[in-house]
Design a protein around this nucleic acid. Sequence first.
RNA 1: GCCCCCAUCGUCUAGAGGCCUAGGACGCCACCCUUUCAAGGUGGAGAUCAGGGGUUCGAAUCCCCUUGGGGGUACCA
Length: 499
Amino acid sequence: MTIRCRIAPSPTGPLHIGTARTALFNSLFARRHGGTFILRLEDTDVARSTLEFERDILDGLHWLGLDWDEGPAVGDIGERGAFGPYRQMQRLDAYREAAERLLRMDAAYECFCTTEDLATDRAAQEAGHQPPHYVGRCADLNTEQRRQRRADNPTPVIRFRVGEGRVEFHDLVRGDVSIDTSALGGDLVIVRSDGTPLYHFTVCVDDTAMDISHVIRGEDHLSNTPKHILLFRALGADVPAFAHLPLILNPDRTKMSKRKSQTAMAAYIEQGYVREALINHLALLGWASGTEEELFSFDELTRLFDLDRVHQGGAVFDRERLDWLNGQWIRRIPDEELVERALPFLTTSVAVHAATGAAVRDPAADDVRDLLPMVRERLPRLDAIGPLVDFLFLDELRVDATMLVPKRWDASTTLTGLTEARRIVGRLGEVSFEADEIEAALRGLCEERGWKPGDLFMAIRVALTGRTATPPLFDTMIALGLERTLERLDRAREALDPG
RNA sequence: GCCCCCAUCGUCUAGAGGCCUAGGACGCCACCCUUUCAAGGUGGAGAUCAGGGGUUCGAAUCCCCUUGGGGGUACCA
């Protein structure tokens, strides 16, 4: 059996974390079994769909490395695959044909009920404590009745008959599921009054046309699956296998939502999460390898993943864990690649200073390459690079006098310390400006004076960087250069002794 | 309301009847390392496996009930 699965996002919002996870699992499943991974754009909600959202979704999936074997034309990439078009609004003919077929077979019928009719029904059902459902007013109209009702409402919808009985199916992660058609809410609308098709209908027509073998999607679709099965049968199609993934949850265990969590993939990208970490984290939300290994690359997942190890319970999206994974993966990214990925974040960070009027030097790839050894272990996210080294790119650093004084020291000791340090570094720097030598000399100074090295170093650190948490001090001095090091030490001394 | 699904440390999870006085990871705490911050190392706290009934010589694992949670119930997807 050829495995064909798909991700079918709707461009009515930016790429959602949940969509990305579903795409990942589909992609992994296809790769694992030598199948085909298809992308289909479900853009039939014309009112809410936009090209920007479509762009965001496609870019995000691509950024994650989730490339599809078949899919629509995007940008300069042409359509791929023999089952297109892969954009639903370009498949209207197929839906029209299928709807007409269902109408001819009397598996569907035209419904002339108005929004008001339906609202009245709904209200009555609610009052009578009945589940909301379509009452079937138009289910059995004869030709004459249809003609009359059409006079009042010339734009009927098309409803699909759900019939009676139970629908049973085997879900690859849930096991056997059984739902009575009476719980489906009555005959469902498959074509709007404006002639455009609705989701439950298009999904079945397309999965059939695209020969989808496995439908892997979020659990929120579990209750809708019987409708789809009924539709597949009516269409005379093979029913694909289903696998409903556990939901990704907010911390309060409700379905992950924009209101309570950060759901847009783009936001994570902006904050410096790397694709390796996002993939790893998403994979672990609802799937486990069964080993004690926690770090998985996409390729490893491709070899290990299978549906039989997918969970049934929902999983809270844990940022702390993502952060940890992100740090782990950042430490594993090859130098040149990390340089390339981190540079934009540094640039942005420096630009923020520039925007406040500070004179800055724009960071270059060479800068990041030089700084890599001292920042790599300190980056839970790529955007952390700014606060870590941005002081290197400021022409002038203004440091508050009170901040310069270490906890155990007073202002005059600090002034003495910085003055002495300036003298030593200045003298040493003319000969050689190397971390080891500077450190040895300054430690010697501390011994002489009875100072704790940590105190002196802290005073220098603040003088040079304006921060109390920085990369190792002596590497920082080298990165800053002799001239600027001395200059900042002088500025700090001036701040401590304005007179 | 009705239907469906789910239920192991705070979180992600291992566990497919005896290997479990329940393992790992994140987070948390302590110590070590250490010029700060990280990273790393070591150790610790943390789950009577939602509760109650069965089945069995034996149940976190199988069955039933209860409770709790979630999802679905559109001319959204």
